[in-house]
Nucleic acid binder design. Structure first.
Length: 444
RNA sequence: GGAGAGGUGGCUGAGUGGCUGAAAGCAACGGUUUGCUAAACCGUCGUACGGGGUCACUCCCGUACCGGGGGUUCGAAUCCCCCCCUCUCCGCCA
């Protein structure tokens, strides 16, 4: 959500953002509703003032214990007289009350519509952001490492997972339907090792480790910008009005919602590992092979809450990308960094980078990380503020990035470290987390 | 899940229909005093929206908000209903 004052003053920029992001937002209607909303408030404030004045008067006439009433008696006015005066004012007041009621009713519907429209206004993308309609408009920023050239016919992670007995898709499907899986033995250990490496790395870089609930109130989904719009992608517990999170970004970003932090507390840097749940509705037939696109996975996520300052926000953005890269480098995986274009970046984002890791079976760099800075977009929805030395409250800026998401990252790890004999060499950085295991051997 | 108690400003806590946007204390901030620190004293000290003023900040006015939403009333922190949350006891349970 943006500041309505900012919106009013930057009409052109907003209209452009709606256009380049391809967002559905009835901007003209918003401006119209905003005007109406302010008119109503003015009118209703005036009526309320009147009503308050009258009520105050009536109170004097109707409160025999009051000082004014006592004084009036002492001045020789009779109780009947005072009661009659009070009754007269009271009937006058009833008319005012009716007008207020009518205004309130309209105000309610106008404000509901206003809020709903406000949720659809997109954040203005940064100047660096390339224009583009979809994924194909993303631009490569840099590349690290080289895809491996095999001197034998490499297998893909599904084959490897099966022959090594570490990925069991059939039973995952039996248990939970399509896009489910189990990791077993060294596969489960490898998964845990990756998460622990990521967690250790991020904590060593000054992030506070946190555990988070993965079922959250719907309002946190709205607050972080996943609702409205993302309902189809989310497993939702209808009767509790709660949702399973698709990322720990939601609880981490929302944990300070409705708070006014002290500027000296910022930046707040948080990291959590959580299971992530995604319905993948609308992705039918897409990435169906293996464990690339699945209904549940684990992810270490990093979140930064910082001061409302573009330069500082940008600095943290680079930092969280560097954090993710540090893990990929430790894992010796080839990857490239992409800046995501306007059409692919999402409504709330100012700037977004994806990291894509080389996956031999896909013969492509494929998304493994996503780093966003959202300005005050989420903070406004969440009412996440801080107070500076000047005593003014401001909305924080929020940022987030993947540190590692597994098992997707196991795809390149397994495929790139495979050997001609069908075994997989465990990356050095993971061995300490796997009781020193150096190789995963096929078992028969 | 059952029974009871309760949710008031950064915190503690008063307030059971009008004079309460809210006592008092603490904390915080500004100042006076002081060689310094402490203490003492004076002052400031919630948020949001709308309006006014200003180059801009400070500022001024109005309205709303005492967990959230409805209701009763001329008038609600105070009465009624629903929901959420916390605590205690019981039950169940990793």
């Amino acid at each position: 959500m943006l500041d309505i004052n900012f919106i009013r003053e930057n009409e052109t920029a907003i209209r452009r953002a709606i256009d380049v992001k391809g967002v559905a937002c009835d901007f003209n209607r918003l401006l119209e509703v905003d005007r109406r909303r302010r008119t109503i408030q003015k009118e209703s404030d005036a009526e309320r003032t009147k009503s308050k004045e009258l009520s105050g008067q009536i109170g004097l006439y109707k409160n025999p214990k009051g000082k004014w009433y006592q004084k009036a008696l002492a001045e020789g006015r009779s109780q009947d007289e005072l009661r009659a005066e009070g009754d007269k004012l009271q009937s006058e007041s009833a008319g005012v009350r009716d007008r207020i009621k009518a205004l309130e009713e309209e105000s309610k519907s106008v404000n509901d519509e206003f809020r709903a429209l406000m949720l659809t206004v997109p954040q203005v993308p940064s100047e660096k952001t390339p224009l583009g309609k979809d994924e194909s408009g993303n631009v490569e920023v840099r590349r690290e490492g080289k895809p491996r050239a095999f001197d034998f016919q490499p297998r893909d992670h599904v084959e490897l997972g099966k022959s090594l007995g570490i990925i069991d898709i059939e039973r995952g499907v039996k248990l939970a339907g399509a896009r489910n899986y189990l990791l077993r033995g060294a596969g489960a250990s490898l998964h845990q090792a990756v998460l622990r490496l990521a967690m250790d790395t991020i904590v060593s870089r000054g992030f506070e480790p946190v555990t988070v609930p993965v079922v959250v109130r719907d309002e946190m989904m709205y607050g972080t910008g996943y609702y409205p719009g993302g309902e189809e992608q989310t497993y939702r517990c209808e009767r509790d009005e709660k949702s399973l999170v698709g990322t720990a970004e939601v609880p981490l970003t929302a944990m300070h919602a409705d708070e006014i932090l002290d500027e000296s507390d910022l930046p707040i840097k948080l990291a959590a590992v959580s299971t992530c749940f995604r319905r993948e509705a609308g992705a039918a037939g897409k990435d169906t092979h293996g464990i690339y696109r699945i209904h549940y996975f684990d992810k270490v996520e990093q979140v930064v809450l910082c001061r409302a300052d573009e330069a500082e926000s940008e600095k943290h953005h680079h930092e969280i990308i560097a954090n993710a890269e540090a893990v990929l480098k430790a894992l010796e995986l080839p990857y490239r960094v992409m800046i995501v274009c306007t059409g692919d970046m999402g409504q709330g984002k100012v700037e977004m980078y994806d990291i894509e890791t080389w996956m031999p079976s896909r013969n492509a760099y494929s998304e493994t990380h996503s780093a966003s800075r959202l300005g005050s977009f989420q903070a406004r929805r969440l009412s996440l503020r801080y107070r500076g030395p000047d005593k003014k409250t401001r909305f924080c800026h929020t940022l987030n990035n993947t540190v590692i998401a597994s098992p997707r990252i196991l795809i390149p790890i397994l495929e790139l470290n495979q050997n001609a004999d069908g075994s997989v060499t465990v990356p050095k950085a993971l061995r300490p987390y796997m009781n020193g295991m150096e190789r995963i051997e096929p078992h028969r």
